Simulated assay, not measured.
Amino acid sequence: MTHRLSPVGLDFAESAPLRMVFAAEVSAPPEAVYTALADDVGSWCAWFTGVSRITPTDGGKGRSVRLTGGTRFVESILAAERPEHYAYRVDETNAPGLRALLEDWRLTPVTSGTLVRWTFAADGPAPFRSMMQLSRPMLGRAFRDSMRQLDRRLVGV
């Protein structure tokens, strides 16, 4: 059953009851990483672990996402600032216990390419937050694996 989530803003990335921040360096330049995140939305299935389908909606103002386990998200893009910032919030999902979810991507040029920082900001009841904290190592591994796959896709490393 699909339910609506709280319509949080960008500030939720800093104020959410549950915040997980992951970072990784990739060889690709920020512009190429940004293009993969924001413009080539359909390619996420090829590099982001767990994403089975993703399509832009509302003329590119939103996205429809399906994960391999069957979880679905309807998202709104909140920031599309080329090439350093991309963020979206989940408006609807079939995931139980979730009250709010925002994902914030920050891209910083570094000598070797790009530092990618991903903030996963969420709210839900205490059992949900506890479960997510326990999942932190798995989510971090999925992020790092996804960044390696993205880098191979973009620069053939």
Rank of each mutant, 00 (worst) to 15 (best):
G42Y: 00
S135H: 04
A121G: 07
R117C: 07
W47G: 10
S64V: 01
T55D: 14
G59A: 08
R106D: 03
P56C: 01
T71K: 02
R144E: 14
F128A: 10
P96K: 13
P7N: 13
A79R: 13
V21W: 03
G156D: 11
V155Q: 03
A100H: 04
P83C: 09
G156M: 08
M138F: 14
G42P: 00
E92S: 01
T119M: 07
L115H: 01
E103V: 14
S43F: 00
P125I: 02
A126H: 01
R63V: 00
M131D: 11
D39L: 13
A32K: 15
D145A: 12
R117Y: 00
G140D: 05
R63K: 13
M138D: 04
T71S: 08
D123I: 04
R141T: 12
W118A: 08
H3T: 12
P125V: 04
D91T: 02
D123S: 13
R82S: 11
R99L: 06
G140H: 01
A122C: 11
V157G: 14
V33T: 03
R53C: 01
W47V: 10
F73Q: 07
S135F: 09
D123T: 03
M132N: 03
N94V: 08
M138Y: 12
Y34S: 03
T35I: 01
